[in-house]
Amino acid sequence: MMTDKEILILYYSQHGAVRQMAHMVARGVEMVSGVRARLRTVPKVSTVCEASEPGIPDEGAPYASLQDLQECIGIAIGSPTRFGNMAAPMKYFWDGTGSMWLKHSLVGKPGACFTSTGTMHGGQESTLLSMMLPLMHHGMIIVGVPYSESELSSTLGGGTPYGASHFAGMANEHPVSEVEKKLCIALGKRLAQIALKLAA
């Protein structure tokens, strides 16, 4: 009996927008026959030496492991913007993947990125590009959002060719818009389609 191949949707979300985007990306993944989404998150990074988070989250997706990266045929990573870069918890997770880099474990797998910012020009594109860097060092193939997605040309909020994005507002007053949701779904669908072809 054949089982569906999986795409890892790995995210860090502080106020919920990136988590909502992750679920939209997962919806796009699961529009492709033969593929399922595996949702995972990363814990907060402590500012002291002691651990600050429980071993298992109180709610939502489980914490990611290196095994999740190994088992999935493609990976989408999402993070809020921190001064034009990915948030520390996501960076910390990728900093711990050296053993996989040494074994070339992720070479040839497709990867995609998504982000949310508090201001319209708060570094969406630089954050997406910064998240691509560890993927490229792992030899992954970067998947973006093509302009064949009409929403990319009409959006007044988030949405870039580098990946899906969302404008949340300084007080997170802007929910993920319908256009932003469509671009998240499009990203997930495209990632799954490309992952299946590469896995074959």
Rank of each mutant, 00 (worst) to 15 (best):
residue 119 T to M: 10
residue 132 M to P: 00
residue 172 N to S: 06
residue 111 G to P: 01
residue 100 M to K: 08
residue 154 S to V: 08
residue 97 T to V: 15
residue 138 H to D: 05
residue 122 G to E: 06
residue 151 E to D: 14
residue 151 E to R: 12
residue 127 T to Q: 03
residue 189 K to S: 07
residue 145 V to R: 05
residue 102 L to N: 12
residue 101 W to Q: 07
residue 132 M to R: 15
residue 140 M to K: 00
residue 127 T to D: 03
residue 128 L to H: 04
residue 158 G to T: 09
residue 133 L to G: 01
residue 126 S to Q: 08
residue 167 F to I: 10
residue 104 H to R: 15
residue 186 A to D: 02
residue 120 M to K: 14
residue 164 A to W: 05
residue 114 F to Y: 15
residue 180 E to M: 08
residue 160 T to P: 01
residue 139 G to N: 05
residue 104 H to F: 11
residue 172 N to C: 04
residue 145 V to S: 07
residue 167 F to Q: 02
residue 186 A to R: 13
residue 120 M to G: 01
residue 113 C to D: 00
residue 156 L to Q: 14
residue 123 G to K: 12
residue 117 T to K: 02
residue 181 K to Q: 15
residue 134 P to D: 07
residue 116 S to K: 11
residue 156 L to P: 01
residue 177 S to P: 05
residue 133 L to M: 14
residue 191 L to N: 06
residue 96 G to W: 05
residue 130 S to Y: 07
residue 175 P to T: 04
residue 173 E to D: 13
residue 181 K to W: 03
residue 162 Y to K: 01
residue 154 S to K: 15
residue 191 L to I: 04
residue 185 I to R: 14
residue 100 M to L: 15
residue 132 M to W: 15
residue 157 G to N: 10
residue 114 F to E: 02
residue 104 H to G: 08
residue 99 S to P: 00
residue 156 L to A: 10
residue 149 E to R: 10
residue 184 C to S: 10
residue 131 M to G: 00
residue 182 K to G: 07
residue 136 M to T: 12
residue 163 G to K: 03
residue 157 G to M: 09
residue 115 T to M: 03
residue 186 A to C: 11
residue 145 V to K: 06
residue 118 G to C: 02
residue 140 M to N: 00
residue 149 E to K: 09
residue 137 H to E: 08
residue 122 G to P: 04
residue 105 S to A: 14
residue 99 S to K: 13
residue 136 M to Y: 10
residue 122 G to D: 06
residue 186 A to T: 12
residue 151 E to M: 13
residue 101 W to T: 07
residue 181 K to I: 09
residue 190 R to K: 14
residue 177 S to Q: 07
residue 104 H to I: 01
residue 144 G to T: 09
residue 172 N to E: 07
residue 184 C to N: 05
residue 141 I to F: 10
